[in-house]
Structures are given as structure tokens and as C-alpha cells.
């Protein structure tokens, strides 16, 4: 579930960056039109990926419950961190992205 959670956070961060007002806070400037659209697509794809990761590792019921928990938790953490330490929010997503392969290995081996 760690991998799914990291992906949720990353996905939400991407969606957030695709919005001008938030990108200004998080990155200093809004993303260009094309990049903004790309960020939005990336965000949704990564969220869908996190759902898939959850479903392949657990039974349907457990997967859905834990995925929703990860979804709500990561969204909440992002908004909280973003409101007080905007740069940190992006850094966390980057760190999370780097940790994804590690989490994937843990999940495959477990």
C-alpha cells in the first residue's frame, strides 16, 4: 500500500500544479498551457495507476478501502503542507517519486 500512497500523493501534486493559482505558490510561476495540460493528464494517470497497484496487491474490498484511505490521506497532507510550506509540498512529491521503485520492490517481494 506504500506504493499506492506515494503515487496518490504524486498524482494529486501533479493535478495541483496544473492549476495556475497553485502552481504560482508551489513553483513560483504558473505552468505554460501545454505543460499545465500535461500535468493534469499525468495527475489522473498516476491516480489511476495507484488504484491499479492497490487492486493487484489485495482483495477487492480491502484494496478499495485502503486506496480511498490513501487518497484522502495524501490529499489532506498535500493541502496542509502546501498551505504553510509550499516548496516542501513539491519536494515531498519528488522524494515520493524517487521512492516509488523501492516501494514497488517491497510490494513485489512481500
Amino acid at each position: 500500500m506504500l506504493l499506492a500512497t506515494l503515487l496518490c500523493y504524486a498524482g494529486f501534486t501533479a493535478l495541483c500544479l496544473s492549476m495556475n493559482r497553485h502552481a504560482e505558490d508551489l513553483l513560483g510561476a504558473a505552468l505554460s498551457g501545454a505543460r499545465s495540460r500535461a500535468a493534469r493528464w499525468l495527475g489522473w494517470v498516476v491516480l489511476a495507476l495507484s488504484l491499479w497497484v492497490a487492486l493487484v496487491s489485495l482483495s477487492v474490498g480491502q484494496a478499495l478501502v485502503q486506496w480511498f484511505a490513501a487518497l484522502m490521506g495524501s490529499a489532506f497532507v498535500l493541502v496542509f503542507v502546501m498551505s504553510y510550506w509550499p516548496r516542501l509540498a513539491v519536494s515531498l512529491a519528488a522524494i515520493g517519486a524517487v521512492l516509488c521503485p523501492v516501494a514497488a520492490c517491497i510490494q513485489l517481494l512481500a
Binding site: 494529486f12 493535478l15 495541483c16 492549476m19 497553485h22 498535500l78 493541502v79 502546501m82 498551505s83
Partner: peptide
Amino acid sequence: FKEFFTFRP
């Protein structure tokens, strides 16, 4: 949706 991530302390 627009204010999904919005929190202004």
C-alpha cells in the same frame, strides 16, 4: 474542483 487544493491561512 477549482478550490479542491485551496486553503488560505
